[in-house]
Amino acid sequence: MGKVIVVTSGKGGVGKTTSSAALGAALAQNGEKVVVVDFDVGLRNLDLVMGAERRVVYDLVNVIQGEAKLTQALIRDKRVETLYLLPASQTRDKDNLTPEGVEKVIAALKNAFDWVICDSPAGIERGATLAMRHADVAIVVTNPEVSSVRDSDRIIGLLDSKTLKAENGERIEKHLLLTRYDAARAERGDMLKVEDVLEILSIPLLGIIPESMDVLRASNVGAPVTLADGRSAPALAYFEATRRLKGETLPVTVPGDKRSFLGKIFGRKAA
C-alpha cells in the first residue's frame, strides 16, 4: 500500500509544483515507484514543469468521468522509469472533480505505487480540499514571507479538520518545506528566519530549499530540479528532504551556510 502525500500551501506561487516534481523525481531516482498527481484542474502546470506537456492525452477528469482508464492517463517519465504523472484537465471545470471519483482514483494509485504525491492547487476551495482529503502526510510549502506564512497557518487548520484522517480522529502528519530561503537576507534581518517560521507554524521541518536560479533553469527545460542538476543547491536540499520523508533523521542544514541548523542553535559546528 502506497503512501499518499499532499503538497499544499494555500498561497500560490510558493513552489508547490516545483516541490512536487522535485520530490517525486528524487523518490523515483531511488527506485521507488512514484506517481505525481496534478489537482490544479483548469490551470495545470505539473506536466510543463516535468517536461511531459506534449504527451498528455487523457487526464484526471477523464478518468473520474469514466472516459479513460487510469493506465491510459498515466504518463511515464522518459528519464526515470519508476516516475509517473497523472495530469490535470486544462479545459474542464474543477466541479468535475467529485469526491467519489477522487477517492476511487487515489485508492487505485495507492495499490499500484509506493508514493502518491498530490500537487494541490492554491486556495482553500474544492480542488485544494480534495487534494488533501486522502493524504497520510502533508507537506506545507511556505516562503519566509508574511502572506505565505499566514496562508500556511490556515491550511494547517484545514489539514487538521477537513482530511479523512482528521475526521477519523487520527493525526495527519504535517511537515514544513521552507522554499526560496535566502540565508544571507535572513542573517541581515530582512527575511524571516527558519526559527521564526518554525516557531509560528509549529510543525516539524522537512527541509529548506534555497532561493536559486537552478529552479527556474530546471523548469525552463522541463525537468524536475533534482533531475536537471542533481548537484545544485536546491536539488541537494530536495534529496535531503526526501530522506527525511522516508523517516531518516538528519540534521537540517541551512543552504549557503556550512553549519547545520541545529548546530547553529546549540552553537556547534556540524560534523
Binding site: 508574511v146 499566514r150 524571516l192 521564526d196
Partner: peptide, 11 residues
C-alpha cells in the same frame, strides 16, 4: 531590520 516586525505582526 524588518524581519522582527514581520514575526511580531504574524504572531
Amino acid at each position: 531590520q524588518s524581519a522582527p516586525a514581520a514575526r511580531e505582526r504574524l504572531q
